[in-house]
Design a protein around this nucleic acid. Structure first.
Lengths: 345, 345
DNA sequence: TCAATCGATGGTAGCGCTACCATATCTACG
DNA sequence: CGTAGATATGGTAGCGCTACCATCGATTGA
């Protein structure tokens, strides 16, 4: 650690920042006219508007949004909670949310729950203290306390990345269950019969739960047995995908295909094969779910299913804005999914 | 799009949420005592504290943080701008920031500039309207307007991911220049002589600029010629790394090593080699920079340099809190970097 | 000419909370 | 016993802005 003379000027004890009253005085109008000039420019005469803008510029006036929010009883702020930020999956959704809200002058408060519903609840509690106009959550696994809180608050809520039968309010996502079934069906169609499963931990993660249910349902529908020894659950890390695959190949009979219900795990597994010389799909076929960018760069390319990650955020944002604008609750948007065919399965 | 009967109760016209005055009345104390009970519990008698908490619970009272901020003239909010969220590199830094701020009761406002300094400025302007207590920026490439704004505002600022000689205020990062030199030196030590470079666009990205300067400086120091035909710049995408490498191998003489100044590009290049059967490092050695998780999963493992991404955020947060607490400006923290040896170079 | 209408502007009164100072009660000590 | 200090509580006065209503002059039509 070193200390340098900072560029920032050391000045006299901070003179307070200019207020609307200061701007009004300088522009020769009343404070309320300044307020209007900044938020409803069309309602102020052009000549005064110019004078006010000039005065504001000269004084280096910066609007005090906090005071504005208190007076207008509206914060123009939205809160969102995602499981993790460092997974680009949810980061894309946040970029989608941001883009729409930004264009409409809304701020976005972001929390990462680390897959812990209690942490999610804490974030939403903090959002309520900020009097957010709406909340966007990931998934449908919430604490009782959070459900109660949101029901009482009666603010718009959207649950993303899933399609609950009975949403808290609105929902934007796709069927994780159907996606998993579609992929398993694809494997069955290709002639694979001993299809193993690698998924994330199911505790507190409804997306993972739905995917695992889809896997089981499709196997059953195809008349194939479900062997519990071929079902593995492990946290979302490349290494874990590799380990799980390695373990599955030690089973006897070994699976002829592996469906990894998350691309992190699938890519980890595929890279393990590339490292150790296991031929994909000849020795074992591999399929993922998420449509991650890296999957299409591998050889063989990973067969996966992709979701409109960014659009989930953008659509959720639009829905929340509609709700804030008075639209009815209860909308559910299914944005679907798409099978990406690689050579891995 | 479908409509379902929402779980949310349709109720009478929203009764206003409870205020401190309501809680005070119910608990038989004055509003100011309620305020103290919530923010300085130790200054209130235990018996009243219990009564107040009970009353708040019964009324479903939620603190109005906006009113509190206005009255106390302190928002307990920090603003941060990163280039993109969807790159886990910066997401890790944000998680580091969040973790520290959350523990101290601060909120974090997040903006993504998309590598556009004007967008960065817009975000900081929005932060100022929220009267943030501090700002954390990525890099040192800022507009004149932003510099002026921050200088005038005289709030704590930390610039992350770089070590400016003359920071705006504080800085937490490492030397991108030294990291690039270290990697090129490593390649030279290994006996490579025609070392090519793939980097990101240098416009408005001081990290990329420093890395490219480091590459050139180390080549010069080693007495090796700098061939402009072996220097490529391209946006951070796997495909672009692949294309750039492919182009470099068409040069004659072809490079015997390629230094990609970002792991996205390096991994893209390495995967291209795996796909097309180019042997690494025999035909061409490959080195990256960022220490991404995927690099260590490939065969050969990617030689790279890793940075304490999360710690950059955590350290920045602590520094900002210190500054808010009155510490002197001008601190620069060099968190260093570490060479990760793989088989790729 | 006068009432009706409209657009532009201003005065007043809070939004819900906390800082500041004042007050009241209690303990400690010479 | 009186005063100083500590502790607990309350009253008052804003924080900086905007909603609401009032006002005022200008325009319009009968």
């Amino acid at each position: 650690m070193i200390q340098v003379p900072p560029r920032m000027a050391k000045q006299l004890p901070t003179d307070k920042p200019a207020t609307m009253a200061d701007v009004a005085r300088r522009a020769g109008v009343s404070p309320i006219t300044v307020s209007r000039a900044l938020s409803h420019p069309s309602r102020v005469a052009a000549i005064k508007l110019a004078a006010i803008r000039h005065a504001a510029q000269e004084l280096g006036y910066v609007r005090h949004a906090i005071a504005g929010s208190l007076a207008s009883q509206s914060s123009r702020t939205i809160g969102t909670v995602v499981p993790v930020l460092s997974n680009s999956i949810f980061a894309d959704t946040i970029e989608g949310l941001s883009e729409v809200f930004e264009a409409r002058g809304y701020r976005l408060l972001i929390g990462s729950s680390q897959y812990d519903p209690l942490r999610e609840q804490r974030f939403v509690e903090a959002f309520m203290e900020q009097r957010v106009a709406g909340v966007a959550l990931t998934g449908t696994t919430h604490t009782k306390g959070l459900r109660a809180l949101l029901t009482r608050a009666r603010i718009p809520v959207v649950e993303m990345w899933n399609l609950p039968r009975r949403p808290l309010d609105c929902s934007v996502g796709f069927s994780n269950y159907a996606a998993a079934r579609a992929m398993v069906r694809h494997l069955v169609t290709r002639g694979y019969r001993r299809i193993a499963y690698i998924g994330g931990p199911t505790t507190m993660n409804d997306r993972t739960q739905a995917r695992e249910r889809g896997y089981r349902a499709e196997l059953a529908a195809a008349g194939l047995p479900i062997r519990e020894s071929l079902v593995r659950r492990t946290p979302f890390e490349f290494e874990n995908g590799a380990k799980a695959l390695s373990g599955l190949l030690d089973e006897s009979p070994a699976p002829d295909a592996v469906f990894a219900a998350s691309d992190v795990l699938a890519v980890g597994a595929l890279l393990h094969c590339l490292r150790t010389g296991i031929r994909v799909p000849q020795q074992v076929a591999l399929a993922g779910l998420d449509g991650s960018a890296i999957g299409s760069q591998l050889a063989p390319r990973l067969t996966s299913i992709c979701f409109p990650r960014r659009e989930i955020g953008a659509c959720s944002a639009r829905l929340l804005l509609d709700r804030i604008g008075g639209a009815a609750p209860g909308t559910i948007e299914d944005l679907g999914f798409e099978l990406i065919l690689g050579e891995s399965a």
